[in-house]
Design a binder for these strands. Structure first.
Length: 558
DNA sequence: GCCGTTTTCGGCCCGACTGTTTTCAGTCG
């Protein structure tokens, strides 16, 4: 069991305790334990009772519960709470804007026990009658439920990948002579996946038998040339069966989205045959188009004119910007983050960007603590040279669009990532103006996660993307492609426009622990969909190049 | 439930924002 899962169980426990009006201090202690476990720098599974209860915020009682969770999957108090809560009420806890207190009223006063009923009550204007509820709250809840409903059956790419990899392993082991390939939206590296599609030459009856033998998977539909099934996470899989001869054609026909295939058919219908996708594209007079680009946008025109971008890869990255450490809310120390970048990833530099002072919840840095961090960076830079840590900050963009420190502090950073963390509910006009003001600040180097969205969980604030991107172009501000699989923000659909305006992008992991740096792979996938090539990516610059870039930018301000 | 002693009890306690109130409670990052 991973720390994240343990932390989730404690979070649920604290929420249910609050729902049942248990002692608020115990409730808070439970929430604090959840937070603490999530931030442990080691897997709790490997820890002893003593090691756990040594941690501040975790006492003997909590440590016992952690061990019980690891060994039995739960603990007594949690079980008791769950058993007296209707499933629908627990589902309400995951809806944004709904907490235990509001749910209490919904459940006890209005007698609503399912999310479906709750939506119905919103539509019937029945929530406004309840104490502490009004029209706006009702509307927010209605929107949040509709957002959650729309996310049903959809999965983040990263989660789908975690499931897809072992299944592909199973398939290739069982049918070593067959050809198997991912196709569809999974192959296109879409940020959200509705089904994992696999093209295979394995015999359909034998695959069906294999699935029947494996209790991880539940077969729910079988045709002559396709199978559909789900796994333990309820992720949908679609297997498509073909022959070795037709494999390349089928792969091409199942990978591209409808618009892409439609445009191909406008060149020639039916499509020419070929032994590889490259041959088929060639027969159409086109260069090979990478799967990520097959979205029916400009890729076919580019392929006609031989103007396809050489898409960036993970190995093009020379460094990483926008990362956190234990100075704010990260799990690993500055030295651990730096060593991981240097030794495990072979990078030339690390940009550290802890939270700024307004982000109190994330232990944001006071001016004094910024100075402390700079001292440690200087020491580490001597020790780790030629590897370099750049002094950055993730400065909150305050409600009025200003940054979080006075200018004389801001000018001392090597670079500044400016991002919004508070006051997320704004209309388009306000949100756009707020960002533009931050972009026009001469000390802003990179605009961080521009929309604040959390995929499948929270919509970003609405933006006039063109205005924001144009402002970045005018002010020489780089736009982040936040590589966290929940964000992938700037969305790839806007990256091409940004590149056309001359804006550089930066694939930033926003890592809060060493392993988080690996998220850059997801950012790379998104950036490839956006058509990014290495020369247009800030952290594909070498250390020498990026040093020169930062220096030049700072000189321009003076 | 955790912590730290004035050492086995008593205090603990983000702040901004929003929407609901008519002075505050709930939620979030």
């Amino acid at each position: 069991m991973e720390n994240k899962a343990i932390a989730k169980a404690f979070k649920l426990c604290s929420q249910l305790m609050e729902l049942f009006n248990e002692n608020p201090f115990r409730t808070k202690a439970m929430a604090a334990a959840s937070f603490k476990i999530d931030k442990l720098p080691f897997p709790a599974v490997n820890a002893t009772l003593e090691q756990l209860s040594e941690q501040p915020g975790i006492g003997k009682s909590t440590a016992d519960k952690v061990l019980s969770l690891i060994h039995t999957g739960s603990f007594a108090e949690l079980d008791a709470l769950i058993s007296k809560t209707p499933t629908g009420v627990m589902e309400m806890l995951s809806i944004k804007g709904l907490g235990p207190k509001k749910i209490q009223i919904i459940w006890n006063d209005l007698g609503i026990e399912t999310v479906g009923e709750l939506l119905y009550a919103c539509n019937e204007n029945r929530l406004v009658e309840a104490k502490g509820f009004g029209l706006k709250t009702q509307e927010e809840i209605r929107k949040a439920i509709e957002f959650a409903n729309a996310a049903q059956g959809l999965f983040l790419y990263a989660k789908a990948e975690k499931a897809a990899t072992p299944f592909m392993q199973l398939l290739t082991t069982a049918f070593p002579d067959g050809i198997h390939a991912f196709t569809g939206e999974f192959r296109r590296k879409c940020e959200i996946i509705s089904s994992i599609d696999i093209l295979t030459t394995a015999p359909v009856a034998e695959v069906a038998a294999l699935l029947a033998d494996d209790e991880t998977y539940t077969l729910f539909e079988q045709f002559d040339a396709s199978l559909q099934f789900t796994d333990a996470y309820a992720i949908k899989y679609q297997l498509l069966f073909t022959s070795t001869n037709d494999f390349a054609t089928e792969l091409l026909l199942t990978t591209g989205n409808e618009a892409h295939l439609q445009q191909l058919k406008e060149i020639q219908d039916p499509l020419p045959n070929g032994n590889t996708e490259t041959e088929i594209y060639q027969a159409l007079g086109l260069a090979y188009i990478e799967p990520e680009l097959r979205e029916g946008l400009e890729e076919i025109n580019w392929a006609k004119d031989n103007k396809l971008p050489k898409l960036i890869t993970f190995s093009d990255l020379k460094g990483t910007l926008h990362n956190h450490s234990t100075y704010s809310d990260g799990v690993h120390t500055l030295a651990q983050m730096a060593n991981y970048c240097k030794d495990e990833l072979g990078l030339e530099y690390l940009g550290i960007c802890d939270h700024s002072k307004t982000a109190v919840y994330a232990n944001g840095l006071s001016i004094e603590r910024v100075a402390e961090q700079w001292k440690e960076i200087d020491l580490l830079n001597e020790k780790l040279a030629p590897f370099k840590i750049f002094k950055g900050i993730e400065s909150d963009i305050l409600s009025d669009g200003s940054l979080d420190y006075p200018d004389d502090v801001l000018r001392q950073f090597d670079f500044v990532v400016a991002s919004v963390h508070s006051n997320l509910r704004m209309d388009e006009e306000k949100a756009t103006q707020r960002l533009i003001k931050a972009i026009e600040n001469p000390y802003t180097t990179i605009l961080g996660h521009p929309t604040g969205r959390l995929l499948l969980s929270r919509a970003g604030y609405p933006l006039d993307f063109k205005k924001v991107i144009d402002a970045c172009a005018q002010n020489g501000v780089i736009i982040e492609v936040n590589a966290n699989p929940l964000r992938l923000d700037l969305d790839w659909r806007w990256q091409q426009y940004a590149l056309e305006q001359g804006v550089l992008l930066s694939v930033n992991p926003d890592a809060h622990r060493t392993e988080g740096l690996l998220d850059m792979q997801y950012g790379i996938y998104a950036a490839r969909k956006g058509g990014l090539s290495a020369p247009r990516c800030l952290n594909a610059f070498s250390k020498v190049e990026i040093e020169a870039y930062f220096t030049k930018r700072k000189d321009e301000v003076r």
